[in-house]
């Protein structure tokens, strides 16, 4: 990646005796949205907070704009916006007072009212923050994180607890920021969110990156599936590139890297013999499939090696090419 905005290599983070992050590496280029996925406890937030400069890594290197986010805090912070996973407000300040306080703390403030309006909070401007609903607080979080016109935006589970309407509003804002050239690092456990927004993503598991790359790359790590039911006496299936699971008659599942090829072979075979394939389904792997494969630890990529980021990239490309 040329001129990466965020550069993480061999990152290790420990709390006391527990190593929450065990050798994570990735780059995020300018204007790119990189999503970190994983279940709770995978190490996403720790990784995020280390890149934000909230904590020092126990090992490895983190660079933002080529600088150390802790040591060069004064030069990095004015250019980034941070939305923490858990943080609070001064409940006795009103929405407007909170935003105005933030405005006077950033170098490049944007106007208060449009920011509140974009997230549907304008009519709540004179309400004490403690009276806001959870979703409204989360939206106020986003207002504050973006108020300083950041070049890099960190969003740690930005839509957790939001209703579908607010979630869409958040996505819209993130898309607008991306169009304006903002670089975004996002954590989420909504796969749909990553699918809609991310240019590239990584799935973390047990403090490591299990798989990373573009959505296509990541999806290609799991094989596509063809499913159908065979009637009795249908005979032997043709030779396929993929692996055939199931009985000669009954439910058949084909796992394949060459969906089009195998699907064509199956359909041609069926037509030739006038076999009816009921409940036929053919689909590429979904992010959901990859995610579950990672969780169950049967993901084919060996994530126990450290510094395997490049290998994974390589493997995923091979998978795409194959």
């Amino acid at each position: 990646m040329n001129q990466s905005v965020i550069n993480v290599s061999e990152l290790h983070c420990s709390y006391g005796g527990f190593e929450a992050v065990r050798g994570v590496g990735f780059d995020v280029g300018p204007g790119e949205l990189f999503a970190l996925l994983g279940t709770n406890g995978a190490g996403k937030t720790t990784t995020m907070e280390t890149i934000e400069g909230h904590r020092a890594p126990t090992g490895g290197k983190v660079r933002v704009f080529g600088m150390d986010p802790m040591r060069d805090r004064a030069r990095v912070r004015p250019r980034v916006g941070i939305m923490l996973q858990h943080s609070g407000f001064a409940g006795d300040l009103t929405v407007a007072e909170t935003v105005r306080l933030w405005q006077s703390m950033v170098s490049r403030p944007s106007a208060v009212d449009p920011a509140l309006e974009a997230l549907g909070l304008k009519h709540r401007r004179n309400v004490r923050v403690k009276q806001l609903s959870g979703g409204e607080r989360r939206r106020l979080d986003l207002v504050l994180a973006t108020l300083g016109n950041p070049e890099v935006l960190f969003l740690d589970e930005p839509t957790t607890g939001l209703d579908p309407e607010s979630r869409k509003a958040t996505w819209e804002i993130v898309r607008n920021l991306l169009e304006a050239g903002t670089t975004v690092l996002l954590t989420t456990h909504y796969l749909e969110e990553a699918e809609r927004l991310a240019h590239r993503l990584a799935i973390m598991h047990d403090g490591r990156i299990a798989v990373s790359g573009s959505l296509t790359d990541v999806l290609a790590t799991q094989r596509a599936r063809i499913e159908f039911e065979l009637p009795e006496d249908a005979g032997k299936l043709p030779d396929l590139a993929g692996e055939i699971r199931g009985e000669a008659s009954g439910r058949i599942e084909v796992r394949t890297d060459r969906l089009q090829h195998d699907l064509h072979a199956v359909l041609a075979w069926a037509r030739e013999r006038d076999v009816r394939l009921s409940r036929l389904r053919a689909q590429h792997a979904s992010l959901d499939d990859v995610f579950h494969a990672v969780q169950q630890g049967d993901h084919q990529q060996d994530s126990s090696q450290q510094g395997d980021h490049a290998d994974i990239e390589h493997e995923t490309r091979k998978a795409v090419a194959g």
């Binding site: 934000e52 609070g88 407000f89 703390m105 950033v106």
Partner: peptide
């Protein structure tokens, strides 16, 4: 206690 200090620490000022 309100996690407000943590938020302030994520802002620009030292």
């Amino acid at each position: 206690e309100d996690l407000y200090l943590k938020r302030l620490c994520s802002a620009e000022p030292h």
